Amino acid sequence: EVTIKANLIFANGSTQTAEFKGTFEKATSEAYAYADTLKKDNGEYTVDVADKGYTLNAKFAG
């Protein structure tokens, strides 16, 4: 089991951190699915991958 950390950075400057656990593939998929649920209210996002894929920095356009 691994933990994927998602740093969510919103256009207004606020941030949120979420963690997803499971296999690498499952946890990564859940992190992206969570970011997708936030698109409606926060706009499209881009992701910078860090820490060999164990940290995802998602920046929302607003």
Rank of each mutant, 00 (worst) to 15 (best):
E1Y: 14
E1Q: 13
E1G: 08
V2W: 05
V2G: 03
T3V: 12
T3Q: 04
T3Y: 05
I4D: 01
I4P: 00
I4R: 00
K5A: 06
K5V: 14
K5Y: 11
K5S: 07
K5C: 11
A6R: 00
A6Q: 05
A6V: 15
A6I: 15
A6K: 00
N7E: 06
N7T: 09
N7P: 01
N7D: 02
N7G: 01
N7M: 09
N7Q: 07
N7I: 14
N7W: 08
L8C: 11
L8F: 15
L8E: 01
I9P: 03
I9G: 03
I9A: 06
F10H: 03
F10A: 01
F10M: 08
A11D: 07
A11R: 07
A11L: 07
N12S: 08
N12D: 15
N12P: 01
N12G: 07
N12V: 03
G13R: 02
G13C: 09
G13F: 04
G13L: 05
G13D: 04
G13Q: 05
G13S: 05
S14Y: 13
S14C: 15
S14G: 09
S14Q: 14
T15Y: 11
T15I: 14
T15A: 09
T15M: 14
Q16M: 14
Q16G: 09
Q16H: 13
T17F: 11
T17V: 13
T17G: 05
T17M: 10
T17Y: 13
T17L: 10
T17A: 08
A18H: 14
A18N: 08
A18I: 15
A18D: 04
E19M: 13
E19P: 01
E19F: 15
E19V: 14
E19I: 15
F20Q: 00
F20V: 02
F20T: 00
F20W: 05
K21E: 06
K21Y: 13
K21S: 10
G22P: 00
G22V: 04
G22Q: 01
G22R: 00
T23W: 05
T23K: 06
F24V: 06
F24Y: 10
E25D: 11
E25T: 09
E25Y: 09
E25G: 08
E25H: 09
E25N: 09
K26D: 12
K26P: 01
K26F: 11
A27T: 02
A27S: 06
A27F: 03
A27K: 00
T28F: 09
T28W: 15
T28A: 05
T28G: 02
S29E: 14
S29V: 10
E30T: 06
E30M: 14
E30N: 10
E30D: 14
E30F: 07
A31H: 00
A31V: 09
A31C: 06
A31F: 15
A31K: 01
A31Q: 00
Y32T: 04
Y32S: 02
Y32W: 08
Y32I: 12
Y32R: 07
Y32Q: 03
Y32N: 02
A33N: 08
A33Q: 09
A33D: 08
A33Y: 07
A33L: 09
A33E: 09
Y34F: 12
Y34P: 00
Y34K: 01
Y34E: 02
A35N: 03
A35F: 15
A35E: 01
A35Q: 01
D36H: 11
D36R: 00
T37F: 13
T37N: 12
T37E: 12
T37K: 13
L38Q: 07
L38A: 09
L38K: 08
L38P: 00
K39Y: 05
K39S: 10
K39G: 06
K39N: 04
K39H: 04
K39D: 00
K40G: 11
K40P: 11
D41C: 15
D41Q: 11
D41I: 12
N42P: 02
N42V: 04
N42F: 15
G43N: 01
G43H: 02
G43Q: 03
G43M: 02
Y45M: 05
Y45H: 02
Y45C: 04
Y45R: 02
T46K: 10
T46H: 10
T46P: 02
T46I: 11
V47F: 07
D48P: 00
D48I: 14
D48A: 11
V49M: 08
V49L: 10
V49W: 15
A50D: 11
A50Q: 14
A50F: 11
D51Y: 02
D51N: 08
D51K: 01
D51E: 07
D51Q: 05
K52L: 13
K52H: 15
K52D: 15
K52N: 15
K52P: 03
K52Y: 14
K52Q: 14
G53P: 03
Y54M: 11
Y54V: 05
Y54C: 11
Y54S: 05
T55F: 04
T55Y: 04
T55A: 04
L56N: 03
L56P: 02
L56W: 09
N57K: 04
N57Q: 05
A58C: 15
A58Y: 15
K59M: 13
K59G: 06
K59Y: 15
F60Y: 13
F60E: 03
F60C: 04
F60N: 02
A61I: 12
A61P: 08
A61G: 11
G62W: 07
G62L: 07
G62Q: 08
G62V: 07
G62S: 08
